[in-house]
């Protein structure tokens, strides 16, 4: 197969994309419905959902989607999950090189980029933060959902944890969302989560090593 500037780099399967979307939506819903319990002055937010009790119900439904969506994705696409697992457990010096220049990238400052793999250092870190953050939120959330069946000390500690994890995770998600959408340098990555693939320019720039691997795998030889 011939090399072309218009080559696409397949990145995310359908399942992953659907789940990411539902995760995004449920996270947003959870954020909106949760906020009013965090800041009382935001109570009017509940009106969107039809009152505080409806908001509570919706928060819980969204929590189910939020938690079981990724679980479903893992079941549907175990290979993809294995890939991610492999990636995040195999760190290279280039990954740290990337992380060291994260803020340069974030604020659009010039910096050099070591060739990155399927996941760059930042994405690996992000996967840890979001993964554990979501798991923590889900766990603490379920605990405070069913306090009557659980030991009270556990419930008591889950309140502050849930309450602390939620804004912290939101903080991470904000950065993640910005980078993946409006950031002029990396915003084009939304194509991967929307359409499933990346352009050659993007792939080679952000994931040079991976782009090379893909080219080899697909036999795209540069003439």
């Amino acid at each position: 197969m011939a090399y072309s500037d218009n080559d696409r780099f397949p990145r995310f399967g359908k399942a992953a994309r659907v789940v990411h979307l539902t995760h995004l939506v449920s996270f947003f819903v959870l954020f909106l419905t949760g906020m009013s319990l965090y800041f009382n002055f935001l109570s009017p937010l509940n009106l969107i959902f039809g009152g505080a009790n409806a908001a509570k119900l919706i928060h819980r439904i969204a929590a189910l989607v939020f938690f079981f969506g990724p679980v479903l994705a893992i079941i549907l696409n175990p290979k993809g999950f294995a890939l991610v697992l492999y990636q995040i457990t195999h760190w290279r010096k280039e990954d740290f090189h990337f992380i060291a220049r994260f803020f340069h990238k974030f604020f659009g400052q010039p910096h050099d980029v070591a060739p990155q793999g399927y996941l760059n250092g930042g994405q690996k870190l992000n996967t840890y933060l979001l993964g554990f953050g979501c798991l923590g939120l889900a766990f603490t959330g379920f605990v405070i959902w069913f306090p009557e069946y659980l030991p009270n000390w556990l419930v008591l500690w889950c309140y502050p944890l849930h309450s602390l994890l939620a804004p912290c995770l939101t903080a991470v998600v904000l950065g993640h969302a910005y980078l993946g959408s409006f950031h002029p340098g990396s915003g084009a990555s939304w194509e991967a989560i929307w359409g499933g693939s990346l352009s050659r320019a993007f792939a080679e720039h952000h994931h040079a090593q991976w782009a090379q691997e893909v080219d080899i795998k697909l036999g795209r030889v540069k003439r």
Binding site: L165, A171, Y178
Partner: peptide, 29 residues
């Protein structure tokens, strides 16, 4: 938690306005 959220929001907004006009899109090399 509120501080973390606000810091993130502030930083992101700052980056947004900072980067808004920049041409940072990856090019083919």
């Amino acid at each position: 938690g509120a501080a973390a959220f606000c810091a993130s929001l502030g930083t992101t907004l700052f980056a947004f306005f900072l980067n808004r006009k920049k041409d940072l899109a990856p090019k083919l090399h």
